[in-house]
């Protein structure tokens, strides 16, 4: 313990709360509060109502929720498959090739997502692949964006995996494919689910690339929130945002349940 005197400790905590509460806790509370209100021009919101939620769980918003969920699930699964495969393949490569592959896979982290959106738009608006205006263009962009994260966490986990397991399995007569399926993947399962959760959350909240790409019939939640706030419907926007956060949290919670089961088996 760094601070020993009681008074000093309280002082430190007070500073912490003063910094922490308005910056981090307040925004979320405010969004939550606003989603139940019709007016907010004083300290507390007024005109409490649940009407926004009725709007936010019906029609356009409900469709956007489904869109987001489908996009995020597809993109995370695609990203997880590619990322894991690439991480496994990279581990089997020579050092120099491995570095090149790693660099290639982390590049989407550094490239602005708006640019990824623009690039996807430019590439798939012309032959040979005409995908502009379809939902696939959104899903492809999301997959590209989150693959980098999946690859990073899987390859980090792979590097931590003790080679003794693989070798013990091989010495017992297991072929490399059998080792991968029965030993490596089960041992990586906690990291894989963590990566899936991360990808899902990122894809759920992805706005920048989506803004460049979305077709009218495939509007994910963030775009809907933006559209709502842009036309001044802040309170409806908040309600949709709360729906978005709740959906993300529920999925993350489910994923972490799976993970706990996997790691404590």
């Amino acid at each position: 313990m760094l601070v020993h005197s009681r008074g000093a400790r309280w002082a430190v905590w007070a500073v912490f709360l003063v910094l922490f509460l308005p910056l981090f806790a307040l925004p979320l509370l405010v969004v939550l509060g606003a989603s139940f209100a019709t007016h907010w021009s004083s300290v507390l919101p007024s005109g409490l109502t649940t009407a926004h939620y009725e709007a936010a769980t019906r029609g356009e918003a409900l469709q956007a929720l489904t869109t987001s969920l489908v996009t995020a699930t597809t993109a995370s699964l695609l990203a997880l498959a590619t990322g894991t495969w690439a991480a496994l393949a990279a581990a089997a490569l020579k050092r120099r090739h491995r570095k090149a592959l790693d660099a290639l896979f982390v590049l989407p982290l550094a490239v602005p997502s708006v640019v990824v959106g623009l690039a996807t738009l430019v590439a798939f608006s012309q032959p040979p692949m005409l995908l502009n205006g379809t939902r696939w263009i959104v899903i492809i962009a999301h997959s590209v964006l989150v693959t980098a994260f999946a690859h990073q966490s899987v390859s980090a986990a792979l590097a931590r995996l003790d080679p003794a397991y693989e070798q013990a399995a091989a010495s017992l007569g297991a072929t490399p494919a059998y080792v991968l399926w029965r030993v490596k993947l089960p041992l990586l399962l906690p990291s894989l689910t963590a990566a899936a959760g991360l990808c899902f959350a990122l894809s759920m909240g992805e706005l920048s690339a989506t803004m460049m790409l979305y077709p009218p019939d495939w509007t994910p939640l963030p775009v809907l929130i933006y559209a709502a706030t842009d036309r001044g419907a802040l309170f409806t926007g908040s309600a949709v945002a709360v729906v978005l956060m709740t959906a993300t949290l529920l999925v993350l919670l489910a994923v972490s349940r799976i993970r706990t089961r996997a790691s404590y088996r």
């Binding site: 981090f24 925004p27 959350a201 759920m204 909240g205 949290l249």
Partner: peptide, 19 residues
């Protein structure tokens, strides 16, 4: 804080609009 990381950034701006 971990949870915070999983939310989209624009939520913050949305909240700041209210505040």
């Amino acid at each position: 804080i971990d949870v915070f990381l999983s939310f989209p950034s624009f939520l913050i701006t949305l909240a700041l609009l209210f505040i």
